[in-house]
Computed example of a mutant assay.
Amino acid sequence: MRVALKECSWQTVGEDLIVVFDPRESITLEDPEGKVEALLSVLREGPRDVGALRAALGARGVEVTGQELDGGLKGLAALGLVERAEGRFTGDPAVDERHFSNLTFFGTFSDLDRHRTDYLRRVREAHVLVLGVGGGGSSLVQCLAGLGVGRLTLLDHDRVETRNFARQFLYKHEDIGRSKVERAAAWVRAYDPDIEVRTVDRWVAGPDDLADLTDGTDLIVGGLDGHPDAGLWVNEAAVRAGVPLVVGGATRTLLSYMSVDPGESACLACEFARQPEEGTGAAAAEDLVHGMRTTNPLIGPVAMQIGSLIALEGLRYLTGFQEPLAAGARVRLDLREGLAASRVPFPDVPDCPVCALAPARVAAI
């Protein structure tokens, strides 16, 4: 195994070594003998295996045992400063160029065991079901395509309208009156011909209308309009299939997104089980909101925020670069507070009938 140094900088201050990889924070390492600085300097010259590293350090007058070097490399890996050289690129120049930024992002989380290309491979092999390609959904499709998701199934029943143009940038004037999923799929194919796209022009009236779409799907994202219970239908279909779900939306001044990890987290049915006491003002307000008909206040910048947040949470499920942040919780961003975020966990409902539908998980061997 050859070890590679990530893109970092350092400076000696007294007996300490100050190292910066992520510009938002610095790492202070005790280095009275200068061994860590010497190791970083050798690694900066290029990737090396352990034997070559020891030889290069020895040429600098720094003698270390194999055990010391192994411990030092593990320590640097734990700090996110080194990774396995063989996993930095795919070896296909066209793929490496296309995914240059994606690989660089994954490099933030790679180490000696998990490679940048491991993350990218999972994305390129993934099948994502996108529910709705309108407001947030159109931006979501663009984010998923940029990540290079290998297969997309796009579901929607609407046609392109002039009023969509304030927030849906997949579409053009010539698309007015045409199927959104067909035009969205055409955009994806033109953007990246390597992405396989399937379209489903369907009105969803219950969880059974999604059952045939979940087989072989790694992730369900987006959301459906048209009925107050549409989110619960999607939730039930996802939990039954054991497929992670990420959804989001916005009111006039509040963005939010949520995710469900079937069998591991609470689900949307748990969230909606939390009802205010009958006869109270809160209950009346809930009823008013539930039955309210409003014009859509969603503008482009807000729609793009929703789409990107859903895509990023979905990426956590697909690759594991981080644990999902919104699993069993609603993450809210308040427009009135400059998009200040808060996380509100779903209530604990031990006897949730929908959660009980999740298939048993098989432990990885």
Rank of each mutant, 00 (worst) to 15 (best):
A166M: 11
V234M: 05
A329L: 11
W233N: 11
V141A: 05
G216A: 07
G307Q: 10
A145F: 02
R151M: 02
S265T: 13
D194I: 05
L213P: 02
G328I: 06
P207H: 09
A230Q: 10
T153D: 02
T104H: 08
G75Y: 10
F106M: 05
S342L: 01
G134S: 15
V62H: 06
P47W: 03
L53M: 13
G137H: 08
T199G: 02
R336A: 13
M258W: 02
P244V: 09
V188M: 12
F272R: 14
G58K: 13
A358S: 10
F100M: 14
L112H: 03
P359Q: 11
W203K: 12
E63K: 07
L43V: 13
L312R: 15
S259I: 13
H173P: 01
E271A: 09
G248A: 14
T253V: 08
G328K: 13
L333W: 13
A269G: 00
V20G: 02
G66N: 09
W203N: 06
R2N: 11
G231W: 00
R60Q: 12
V221L: 13
V204D: 00
V331N: 03
A363Q: 15
L53K: 14
V95A: 15
G107C: 11
R167E: 08
A94Y: 03
E313F: 01
F165L: 07
F165G: 13
G307C: 09
G314P: 09
S101T: 13
G242D: 04
G91V: 05
G281I: 00
A266D: 13
P350Q: 08
A126C: 10
R54F: 01
L333Q: 11
H157V: 15
L40I: 06
R124A: 05
R88K: 13
G291T: 07
G206E: 06
G223Y: 00
G263P: 05
W10E: 15
V204H: 01
A283D: 00
A341Q: 11
R343D: 01
R114I: 12
H157D: 10
H173L: 14
D261S: 15
G91I: 04
Q275N: 08
Q142M: 12
V64N: 01
T117I: 12
V181P: 01
A126V: 08
G222Q: 08
V36N: 04
R252Y: 02
F169E: 10
M292S: 09
R98K: 15
T319P: 02
V95C: 02
V95G: 01
G137P: 03
G328V: 08
V130H: 02
A126L: 12
D351W: 04
V123E: 10
A211S: 08
L245E: 07
Y317H: 15
L129Y: 03
Q275S: 03
P32M: 14
L357Y: 02
G177D: 09
E277S: 05
G61V: 14
R159C: 07
D113P: 01
G148S: 07
L39W: 08
S101D: 13
G263W: 12
D215C: 04
T251D: 00
L254N: 05
G249D: 14
R60F: 00
A205G: 10
G14F: 07
V221W: 08
L140A: 08
I220K: 05
A211H: 05
H99E: 08
D113S: 12
D158Q: 09
T214K: 05
